[in-house]
């Protein structure tokens, strides 16, 4: 038995079922409420413990935080739970212990959609654009929850990523890898978020494009928007980070400023490769 009473018995018949674009996450259910919880950093996932579905814990009392005007970076070896920690902060997996606070409120029980409304912008690692829609439509969909005029924000995004303005009428799926990531970040910025979360924004792009993306991210952070990101390219990421978290097997292994971590012998030896 693969998955409960409503599994598909291995049926992949394209004439009756459409797996494309289906939801795969198991997020916090809608209907929870926030509670006031003053103090602490702007966004913090504190002592988070949890895993997917009924599976084993992936995170073990893991803490991640970012404050105004900062770039915080989560790094670590493969399978360390970096992306899981990020998803936990965003409510894409239910915590068994710990809490998430944003701007003086406990938002642990909020669904991801509700967190977007609270001002969190999230860029998933994969499937982070609407491939069949134009660049402009992607940005419009990013701003779906807004009822005011979005043209100003769209201009700001186009200023940040000029190439998108030229390709605004093109289907996002036809763009190159780096351009797609720009669309993805731009989409998240359209809500005018109070904090931006990026899950491996440079995965699968060339080094040149990666540098450019980092530049753009720094530019975003300079506007005062806190940025929390997971990165595979630890050196470059720590170099621009105000705060770094090294995760190992779902636990905080090292925490410090980006520079301090880069200078730390143990971090270098065990993780950055010398």
């Amino acid at each position: 038995m693969s998955g409960g009473p409503y599994d598909d018995r291995g049926n992949h018949d394209a004439s009756i079922t459409n797996p494309c674009g289906m939801a795969e996450d198991d997020p916090v259910h809608a209907g929870g409420h926030e509670h006031p919880a003053p103090g602490g950093p702007f966004l913090i996932g504190e002592a988070m413990t949890g895993g997917y579905g009924r599976g084993a814990d992936i995170l073990h009392s893991c803490t991640i935080a970012v404050d105004r005007g900062e770039i915080a970076v989560i790094v670590g070896p493969n399978g360390a739970g970096k992306s899981t920690a990020m998803k936990a902060v965003f409510g894409m997996l239910s915590l068994r212990e710990g809490m998430v606070r944003l701007d003086g409120e406990d938002i642990t029980e909020l669904s991801p959609q509700a967190r977007v409304r609270k001002g969190m912008g999230f860029v998933p690692q994969t499937h982070n654009i609407f491939t069949s829609m134009t660049v402009e439509e992607n940005l419009e969909m990013g701003a779906f929850i807004r009822r005011d005029d979005i043209s100003g924000t769209m201009e700001q995004v186009f200023d940040l990523f000029p190439i998108l303005k030229d390709k605004r009428r093109q289907a996002a799926g036809e763009l190159s890898g780096g351009q797609r990531q720009q669309v993805a970040v731009g989409r998240a910025l359209m809500t005018k978020p109070k904090v931006l979360m990026l899950d491996e924004p440079t995965a699968g792009v060339s080094p040149i494009v990666m540098d450019e993306l980092f530049d753009r991210i720094i530019e975003v952070a300079r506007t005062g928007l806190p940025v929390l990101m997971v990165e595979q390219n630890a050196r470059q990421a720590l170099a621009i980070a105000d705060k770094g978290y090294v995760l190992v097997q779902g636990r905080n292994a090292h925490t410090g400023t980006g520079k301090a971590l880069l200078a730390d012998d143990e971090v270098r030896r065990s993780f950055l490769g010398g």
Binding site: G21, M22, A23, E24, D25, P27, P112, Q113, V116, R117, F122, P124, H127, N128, I129, F130, T131, S132, M133, E137, E140, M141, G142, F144, I145, R187, T191
Partner: peptide, 22 residues
């Protein structure tokens, strides 16, 4: 229309549509 586009978005990528507040 906004609703029409949100339908296309939902069809294209359900998870991302949810994240966008659709």
């Amino acid at each position: 229309t906004r609703t029409g586009k949100s339908m296309r978005a939902y069809s294209d990528n359900e998870d991302l549509a949810l994240l966008s507040g659709i």
